Amino acid sequence: MSTTTEATTESLQPDLTDRIRGAILSGDFAPHQRLIEADISARFDATRAAVRTALMNLAGEGLVERLPNRGARVRAISVEEAIEIVEVRMGLEELCARKAAENVSDEDAAGLADLREQIRSAVDAGDLVGYATLNQEMDRRIRELSGHATATQLLERLHAQSARHQFRLAYHPGRVSQSGPEHIAIIDAVLARDPDAAADATRRHLQGIVRLLSELP
């Protein structure tokens, strides 16, 4: 392979990892499903070497598991493990919420206030898909405002691992009417520049997720 081709493959690699990750999180690849390099290569129009590297990246994130002499498959996350992930997230997200409240600027606050109203509208309309997207955007903004690179990196990995269970919870009866006000409370605390209130609201929200996960069949 020429140096130019290697450089091109290297530059495309993060995108391929993102695309395969997206397929796993959206359910295109099911838990325990074998990930055959030739099939993925054809699906994403990528080289076998690029696919192999992407799968290694995703194994490092905990989304894929390598099988001795059998390639790779989508790693299944049990409810028990999902609960542990949320418990770990709790400390990290409290930290990010606290720092976001300390760091938020007037410009940031205006954007958060707009997002708050979008969340309220989605809840009132019963728009589950829209609400889920806004929820992800809120989480992203809090992490961004925190300015804590290490916590952000860890949280992004943990969110990816528990995404399937989060999706199940999003459609749990009455979940949106409960979690919507919880998210709004987090935003309100950040807007008030109250670190303790932001951390408390975040902890209460995640404790609710743990309770719901423990009730899943």
Rank of each mutant, 00 (worst) to 15 (best):
Thr9His: 14
Glu10Gly: 04
Gln13Phe: 04
Asp15Lys: 13
Arg21Gly: 05
Arg21Val: 03
Ala23Tyr: 00
Ala23Gln: 04
Ile24Asp: 04
Asp28Pro: 00
Glu37Asn: 12
Asp39His: 15
Phe44Arg: 14
Arg48Val: 09
Ala50Thr: 07
Thr53Ala: 15
Asn57Gly: 10
Gly60Arg: 06
Gly62Thr: 03
Glu65Leu: 00
Leu67Tyr: 04
Pro68Val: 01
Gly71Leu: 01
Arg73His: 00
Val74Cys: 07
Ile77Phe: 01
Glu80Met: 01
Glu81Arg: 12
Glu81Lys: 08
Ile85Phe: 10
Glu87Gln: 13
Met90Thr: 15
Gly91Phe: 13
Leu92Tyr: 11
Glu93Cys: 07
Glu94Lys: 12
Leu95Lys: 14
Asn103Leu: 06
Ala109Phe: 06
Asp114Thr: 15
Asp127Thr: 03
Leu128Ser: 08
Tyr131Gln: 10
Thr133Trp: 13
Asp139Arg: 14
Ile142Leu: 13
Leu145Met: 04
His148Glu: 12
Ala149Lys: 13
Ala151Ile: 05
Ala160Pro: 09
Gln166Thr: 14
Phe167His: 12
Pro173Glu: 00
Pro173Cys: 06
Gly180Arg: 02
Gly180Cys: 02
Ile187Asn: 08
Ala197Gln: 08
Ala198Gln: 03
Ala199Asp: 01
Asp200Ile: 08
Thr202Leu: 07
Arg203Met: 09
Arg203Phe: 06
Arg204Thr: 09
Gln207Met: 08
Leu213Gly: 07
Pro217Ile: 02
